[in-house]
Simulated assay, not measured.
Amino acid sequence: MRTSRNPELTAAWATVPEVAKAQERYEEAVRLRRAFRSGMTPEVALTAVQDAAIATLTDTGKWSTSFAKDAAKAHAESVVWQAESVALRRAEDSLKFAAEDTRDTMAPDVLAYLNARLTEILTAAKGASTALGDVTTAEGAIDAGGDALDAWRRLTGLLSDLRNVRAAQWDVLRSVSYEDDQARMRTWMARGHGEVRGVRLDDIPEHVRDAMRSRSYSIAQLVWLAHSGAAYVPTSYDDLAANVAASEEPISYTDSGRPANYSPRVTPLPTPTPAKVYPHSITPHLDKSQPVPAPPKVNAVMRDREATTLEHF
């Protein structure tokens, strides 16, 4: 059963009642198995009865008259003990699998909770950072004192929360992914993916990218994330993969060095040209029971000769 000392991950799982219930059932199965009395298998129990009978014969020269009764009793008790022991072991394994499966099924809810926690942390960090002013180090906060020092202490606590949220995020994503996907995630993590979206990695300050790659954050990076509005927790492996693809989409450039614009162009519809009506044109008379329709209005004249190639072009 997966266990963790990460308070953010523990709190996240605690928000899902199904997971808490499955965990309780599994822990009860473990307790029952460990508290179960010691015993012997039927083979060992019968061997013990046989050894006792042989020892009696050796010492007294007489065979035990209660051998059959003793053997039957030992066998019956050992069969019951073995059956219960196996049942408890199977129950533990089954409930462990059920608890793990429940965690995997409910992982999107946990990741959504972690995303909400990240938003809370960064909102608080954004508010606290306004009191820092030009302070960028702990020594500077101590020298400044007052609101700046209080803000630094507040940001230090939020920095610990940020680290726990990120660790919990990757713990959950790894637990619900296949081996091949886990390998891809390790590559993405090494490049700094999975922490911001809507921003290309090349557009992120180098010190922030270094922190995302190593997951070793400082207050400066926490403040940047708080003001960027781009930090997030992926809701699934597919969500993470989509954001990786979007942030690494190649950019094409024109010959002048500017990014190429492939936005669709809207071409206006051309004004239709009215049909040409010549003097010899007539209006079709389809219904002979009706009066002959008036001739159409002439808007063109027949040419005296065929147009030449030069006139066409």
Rank of each mutant, 00 (worst) to 15 (best):
L222M: 07
Q221A: 08
D238G: 12
D238I: 06
Y237V: 13
H227T: 09
V233R: 06
P234G: 07
V244W: 02
S228L: 08
A231V: 09
V223G: 11
Y237F: 15
S236Q: 04
L222R: 07
Y232D: 05
I219N: 04
T235Y: 11
Y237N: 03
S214E: 14
A242K: 14
V244I: 13
Q221I: 00
R215E: 12
I219R: 06
A242Q: 15
T235W: 11
N243Q: 15
M212T: 00
D238W: 03
A211G: 13
M212V: 00
R213W: 06
A226G: 02
S218H: 13
W224T: 01
S216D: 13
D238A: 15
M212G: 01
S236L: 04
L222G: 02
V223W: 09
R213Y: 03
D238K: 13
Y217N: 02
L225I: 01
N243M: 02
L240C: 08
Y232N: 06
T235G: 12
T235D: 09
A241I: 07
V223C: 12
Y232C: 05
A231R: 03
A211L: 07
I219W: 03
N243E: 15
Y232R: 06
R213P: 00
L240I: 01
A220Q: 11
A231K: 07
M212R: 05
A230V: 12
I219H: 03
Y217G: 04
Y232T: 01
D239P: 03
S214N: 14
R213C: 06
L240H: 10
D238L: 12
A231F: 11
Q221V: 00
V223I: 15
I219S: 05
A242W: 07
L240F: 12
V223N: 04
V233F: 09
V244N: 02
M212L: 15
A226K: 10
V244A: 10
L240M: 12
A242I: 06
R215I: 00
Y232S: 03
V244Q: 04
S236D: 04
H227M: 11
Q221N: 13
A242N: 15
H227Q: 15
R215S: 12
L225A: 04
S216W: 01
S218V: 08
R213T: 05
S236N: 00
S214Y: 02
W224D: 00
A242C: 08
A242L: 13
N243G: 12
V233M: 07
L222W: 07
R213L: 10
V233S: 04
Q221K: 04
V233C: 10
Y237Q: 02
T235I: 13
S218P: 05
S236G: 08
S214G: 08
S216M: 10
A226L: 08
A242R: 14
S216T: 14
A230C: 15
S218A: 14
S214I: 09
W224A: 03
A241M: 12
P234N: 09
D238Y: 10
L225W: 01
A241L: 07
D238R: 14
A220I: 06
